[in-house]
């Protein structure tokens, strides 16, 4: 055979393998990995971890008379401010609105995600694209669209007038804020729910029906428990940003509907009470971290 023949190459030289060589090789691999991670690692330490620590330090600092911040003399003053009536009101309102937003998203998204997973692959992909587009669309613009719709004499009001409910003035109300939040975060609920439901083996539902479950029972005892990871992931993904929402309440909400996000911003941009703002941010962050950790503990893998 002419194509493959044994050719006599120049001798190749290696060494007899030793544990030392193996260890040196592994160390070199580790070094290589570390060097690749280093730029991003160093960047995140400097521009993320350090700022994070600064916020926590600030939350224990004191506000001085000139609106500046005195870093000496650590105290819990700004955390005590959380018990303030106004602050409690804002916290409760934020949590309630975020919870309502989450529940509404869940109620809309679950049947949608379920229906989507029953369609033909072609239709399914089309629906997925239909969800992805708003997901990628500029968030500010999407909120602003609701400003246009809900405004005085705007399209929404004209529709309600036309059907006989009469003129509506929803802009600058909590209802408008919830509408904006649902609009903004619904894709965050649909996508993980779809991912969870789509993975479920349809034969399990058939089996439950075969075992005398009616439609609701098979949903309650089979579909829902199996899709729980998606429900939890989606709920976290909607609840957390809703809780810290700033743009939506600023555009669609009014003076009486201040939410946590806006309130924090106010502490920095106008009230100049940075330690208090920092402590509110820290609390928000702890809520977020706890929710995420709970999710991962419960066996969630990706957000």
């Amino acid at each position: 055979m002419s194509i493959i023949e044994q050719t006599v190459d120049e001798p190749i030289d290696g060494l007899v393998a030793t544990p030392e060589f193996e260890a040196a090789n592994e160390a070199q691999q580790r070094r290589r990995g570390f060097l690749m991670a280093l730029p991003a690692f160093a960047y995140l330490i400097l521009f993320f971890a350090v700022p994070l620590v600064i916020v926590i330090v600030y939350s224990f600092a004191t506000r001085n008379r000139f609106g500046g911040t005195d870093l000496n003399g650590w105290n819990l003053e700004s955390y005590r401010g959380l018990g303030d009536d106004l602050v409690r009101q804002i916290l409760v309102r934020s949590v309630v609105l975020a919870a309502i937003t989450t529940v509404i998203c869940l109620l809309i998204a679950y049947p949608f995600a379920y229906y989507m997973s029953t369609r033909r692959p072609a239709v399914r992909n089309l629906m997925l694209v239909g969800v992805m587009i708003p997901f990628w669309t500029n968030f500010l613009v999407r909120n602003y669209a609701w400003y246009v719709i809900l405004g005085t004499d705007g399209p929404f009001s004209q529709v309600t007038e036309f059907v006989g409910i009469g003129e509506t003035r929803l802009l600058f109300t909590q209802t408008a804020v919830v509408m904006g939040l649902v609009y903004g975060f619904l894709p965050f609920m649909i996508l993980p729910l779809y991912a969870a439901i789509e993975r479920i083996d349809g034969r399990l539902l058939e089996a439950s029906r075969d075992l005398y479950a009616n439609g609701f029972q098979s949903f309650r005892h089979v579909l829902l428990p199996l899709s729980m990871p998606g429900v939890i992931a989606g709920s976290i993904l909607v609840f957390i940003p809703s809780l810290g929402a700033y743009v939506t309440p600023e555009i669609l909400g009014g003076a009486k509907t201040t939410l946590l996000g806006s309130y924090i911003v106010t502490q920095f941009l106008s009230a100049r009470n940075m330690p208090f703002g920092a402590s509110l941010s820290t609390v928000l962050m702890i809520v977020m971290l706890t929710a995420t950790l709970v999710y991962f503990r419960k066996g969630g893998r990706t957000l």
């Binding site: 691999q29 580790r30 070094r31 290589r32 990995g33 570390f34 690749m36 991670a37 991003a40 690692f41 995140l44 330490i45 521009f47 993320f48 971890a49 700022p51 994070l52 600064i54 916020v55 957390i240 940003p241 809780l243 810290g244 700033y246 946590l260 996000g261 924090i264 911003v265 920095f268 703002g277 920092a278 941010s281 820290t282 928000l284 962050m285 977020m288 971290l289 995420t292 957000l303």
Partner: peptide, 28 residues
Amino acid sequence: FTFRGKQVFDALLYLPIIIPDVTMAVMM
């Protein structure tokens, strides 16, 4: 690769995704 500090790096890489905008804004 595996390397020293990998888990810390992994966790640090996740944080900016889950941290609320407002908190990150305050940090910066």
